[in-house]
Design a binder for these strands. Structure first.
Lengths: 370, 370
DNA sequence: GTGAAAGCGCTAACAC
DNA sequence: GTGTTAGCGCTTTCAC
């Protein structure tokens, strides 16, 4: 493997000159530059990243830690981050913490040891202690999706409470009354806030939340399935259910279909997270679409801004989710009992409805100051 | 940021001793080790990865380059690789080439510059020239999913031809005759081999492939939609379609539903790649399940083996796909024309059927020698 | 505009 | 079992 010394010798210059050419230093003789570049090409020389990092004490790399690579919510978000990072000349290291605090810790350590320029963390729960170290190192960091209570960090989140509240409001309007909620862990802000929104939606309409109808899982498919099975086995099962994320929705659907029940005849369903197949499912699923790609964009912008020297107080960017109404929450009607024939037209198509933009649903929104 | 020198001073030892403690060198006085460890903890010392890499000329990191982070096929595969890598003490850098040869090239360069221990490449098409450099550097590398023609590299693939052939055979058995194929680019081995299998399946039954029914897209949703629309607009549209991957299947479904057609009444569908929602879709989708996680495992094992010193000839590991039969390919029958009422029971449930294991479908399989 | 030389933080001979 | 020291490959003053 050729080094900068080899290049210098081949070009008949000093290593300093080669380095200058490498870094596009303007005050280098163009003729020299050409000679150096030719030598580089001939030798197949590639600057050592390690040496450069060691010397400059920083690498043009961001580390991005997400709880689940298989969850489309996170990977779509990654795309948003990627587009900004790539545009600004940073490479991205994506790490999968697998909802495992130990792995998250390990990757955080790795990021610090690698002296990356910045870190994007979609925290797993509960917050790991190693974060104190990260803060101590003063590496620019932004959290996304979940907020870390007790840490004063830049963060980008979705207005989860509003999303859940919109969904419950919608279900109530459509005539559902016994509305259940399958949610993620309450030590995640997403889990907690979605529960708050769910309760608020009910209480606004004078309905007392029935704690029997609130089930907690882990944001994964198996958990959604298990909790849905539990709900269906209740003496008085729910007539509608709000599911806290995409993967648990899959599980819930499995449980519902397997029990021989029909949506929305026997039970209506709204889930957090949208994707192409929500509109293609059986029936099309009403869902709370999160602006995932934009989440990534905003996160990356905040991080870039920190890296470029912003040292002000921590900022919050909160984006609004949008309720896409489809067939899984068709209006409940008297005498609505047959299976296929009476299903209204909207139940079969993926009818979209723009976000509700009333005063209520916007409460708590705040655009992040740059 | 504390360095090894700070730790050495604090513990009253030399940097060499600190280094030994760091690397669990057995011949170091346990008492010393404790003292050093305490100093490390007190100072919040973290070894510089860059310095270590520079010195040892290798980092315990693998770079993994995939064409699309949003495609569940690849992320599931990543999980398999992760489990092996993590177990063997390697961290994973995941890079998204976005089906863009330039990005792939950039990430390959980054990997070399970072002096990673190994590279897993799921190549984008067409093969980029920078690969020659990688080979020249003798960095252990394994390709997965797509094979790189003309490069003698370890690779792990699925028997694509067999998968496509099984699917076509199945459709023919069920009475479909005008079978279309929406496929990926033919300069990918996956695209090419699936087409070969499709043709072979037809020819085996004495049916001449109709080139009008073969449409090529880019393995993405929009392309699948576009080509399906094209097929539906033909004077004599197909009665069944084989779609080359999960994302294009989504697009194809959109086109079919939007045109007001029903599956399988108007057109049957089999798609490559399986996932939970295939069984939950409307109707449940027959699909060719690839052993994605296992693909990752095998890939990682091959890479590990190279890193540990194997220098023999390039190896191929080929895994077999499995056809999961569901409602989207229900047997075609005379008089099968009404919409819902006559739909047979299997159309509504996700009936699973084990892989066909006849001689024919196993042709070409080869287990990779370790 | 160019070169000499120091030094980033670590590891690994080698000496004791 | 421990310390001394050279040096990995690069960038960056500081002279000239």
């Amino acid at each position: 493997m050729a080094t900068i010394v080899d290049v210098a010798e081949a070009a008949g210059v000093s290593t300093a000159t080669v380095s200058r050419v490498l870094n596009n230093n303007p005050r280098v003789d163009p003729v020299m530059a050409v000679r150096v570049k030719r030598a580089i090409a001939e030798l197949g020389y590639r600057p050592s990243r390690a040496a450069r990092t060691l010397r400059t004490q920083q690498s043009r790399v961001w580390t991005l830690i997400i709880p689940d690579v298989r969850n489309p919510f996170f990977t779509e978000m990654v795309r948003g981050i990627e587009d900004v990072a790539y545009g600004a000349g940073y490479a991205l290291i994506l790490c999968n913490s697998d909802e495992d605090g130990t792995k998250e810790h390990a990757y955080l350590e790795l990021a610090l040891a690698e002296q990356v320029s910045g870190i994007v963390l979609a925290p797993t729960h509960p917050p790991v202690s190693s974060l104190r170290d990260v803060l101590a190192q003063a590496v620019p960091i932004v959290t996304v999706d979940r907020k870390l209570e007790g840490y004063d960090l830049d963060h980008v989140v979705v207005n989860n409470a509003s999303g859940a509240e919109q969904a419950v409001e919608h279900l109530l309007e459509r005539g559902y009354r016994r509305i259940a909620c399958i949610n993620g862990p309450l030590d995640t802000t997403t889990g907690w806030e979605r529960l708050v929104g769910y309760r608020r939606g009910l209480e606004r309409q004078g309905i007392a939340p029935d704690e029997e109808l609130v089930r907690l899982a882990d944001f994964r498919e198996a958990g959604g399935r298990r909790e849905m099975e539990h709900l269906l086995a209740l003496e008085e099962p729910p007539d509608a259910v709000l599911v806290g994320n995409n993967l648990m929705t899959l599980g819930a659907l499995e449980a519902i279909f397997q029990s021989g029940r029909e949506i929305p005849r026997d039970v209506a369903l709204v889930g957090f997270d949208d994707s192409s197949w929500n509109a293609l499912s059986r029936p099309p699923l009403t869902s709370i679409a999160q602006p995932t790609y934009e989440l990534g964009l905003e996160t990356a912008r905040l991080l870039l801004n920190r890296i470029e020297g912003y040292t002000g107080p921590a900022r919050e960017v909160m984006l609004s989710p949008v309720l896409n109404v489809r067939g899984s929450t068709v209006a409940r009607r008297a005498g609505y009992t047959t299976i296929e024939s009476t299903k209204p037209k909207e139940a079969r198509d993926g009818v979209r409805q723009p976000a509700r933009r009333g005063d209520r649903s916007k409460r708590g929104d705040r655009s992040g100051a740059q």
